[in-house]
């Protein structure tokens, strides 16, 4: 495992961690965190692939002819992706607060049970 692949391994570890949290943790806030970690791993992937070996920050320097620059495009893209990620997390957490207010819990399966109970109560309640 060369040092060049280290970042990629970390991307995979983060990605799997994120997905695992989404799957394994019933708590909605933790799930949102899992999603965020998953997104971060992709952002890291982009950052990593923009890196050019020995390259420096892509700022033009007068007179320096043979300087290798890192690819700036993925960085720029990730600025947008980070904003998207933040927006998603914010909206998710806001929704989680509202869900907690309404259901009194943040456990996914408990919410699901409450929802099914809602449906059955409505059916039993009849047309009026």
């Amino acid at each position: 495992m060369g040092p060049g692949l280290y970042n990629y391994w970390m991307v995979i570890v983060l990605m799997m961690t994120g997905l695992y949290v989404v799957l394994a943790r019933p708590n909605l806030v933790k799930k949102i965190m899992g999603v965020t970690i998953f997104q971060m791993s992709v952002i890291m992937l982009y950052i990593t692939l923009g890196k050019v070996a020995g390259g420096t920050a892509p700022i033009l320097i007068e007179g320096a002819e043979d300087v290798a620059y890192s690819n700036p495009v993925p960085h720029v893209l990730m600025l947008t992706a980070i904003v998207v990620g933040i927006a998603t997390t914010a909206l998710g957490l806001a929704l989680a607060i509202r869900v907690y207010e309404e259901f009194g819990t943040l456990e996914d399966d408990e919410i699901r049970d409450a929802e099914i109970a809602d449906a059955m109560a409505a059916e039993a309640g009849g047309a009026d």
């Binding site: 997905l19 989404v22 799957l23 394994a24 019933p26 909605l28 799930k31 996914d108 399966d109 699901r112 929802e115 099914i116 449906a119 059955m120």
Partner: peptide, 19 residues
């Protein structure tokens, strides 16, 4: 109505399918 395949699913259920 409300059977195994049509019931509201937990996120885990949906995400498992995704994976």
């Amino acid at each position: 109505d409300g059977a195994a395949l049509t019931q509201t699913r937990t996120i885990r259920g949906i995400a498992l399918w995704v994976l």
